[in-house]
């Protein structure tokens, strides 16, 4: 069963992946040190399909793309938060890490809850509480980037 890692407001990119590891950008190194400075056990206990739940302003601080890359490399299905810092938001879309911005949802999840996400129909279900939440649909402009599999894959199409 997937797990939820729950954190508070203003989780910054320095704690998601500390600068001392920024000389690397490979999945193995980034995964090994993801969340290290606020949750030393994260990399040991995370498994594919888990979720991170944050509060306001998740991903604030540095523009390092290593931060969403580290979370993606850890196998996280999606990051759910009340709000996201804007550079982290862009970076996540660009590399294909799903983000869900929803205050009620973030408030309605506790550490250890089990979740299922249905991206197709825009629904998150908290299996522990039995509650269901809507995921706000992405604007068409961003859907095109996501559908292309990332920003760089849109380049050739634009030339035509």
């Amino acid at each position: 069963m997937n797990k939820v890692f729950k954190y508070g407001d203003n989780v910054d990119t320095d704690v998601i992946i500390p600068a001392r590891y920024l000389t690397a950008s490979d999945d193995a190194t980034l995964k090994a040190h993801c969340m290290e400075d606020i949750d030393a056990d994260f990399s040991k206990t995370v498994s594919a399909g888990d979720f991170i739940v944050g509060g306001q302003n998740f991903g604030c601080g540095s523009s390092r793309e290593h931060a969403p890359l580290a979370i993606k490399a850890s196998g996280i299905t999606a990051v759910i938060a009340k709000s996201f810092a804007r550079i982290f938001f862009r970076n996540s879309i660009n590399i294909g890490l799903p983000l869900i911005e929803n205050v009620q949802l973030a408030d309605g999840i506790s550490a250890g809850d089990a979740l299922t996400v249905d991206f197709e129909n825009g629904l998150v279900k908290n299996l522990t509480t039995g509650k269901t939440y809507d995921i706000p649909p992405a604007p068409l402009f961003l859907k095109k980037i996501i559908a292309a599999g990332g920003l760089l894959n849109t380049i050739d199409k634009n030339k035509g």
Binding site: E65, P68, I87, N91, N94, L151, L152, T154
Partner: peptide, 23 residues
């Protein structure tokens, strides 16, 4: 992220990530 500095000179400047910059 501190690319926003150039607004001091009346520019629109902002920080992004590596993939945005690659594009």
């Amino acid at each position: 992220s501190h690319t926003c500095t150039y607004g001091a000179l009346g520019a629109f400047s902002t920080g992004m990530g590596s993939t945005d910059i690659a594009y």
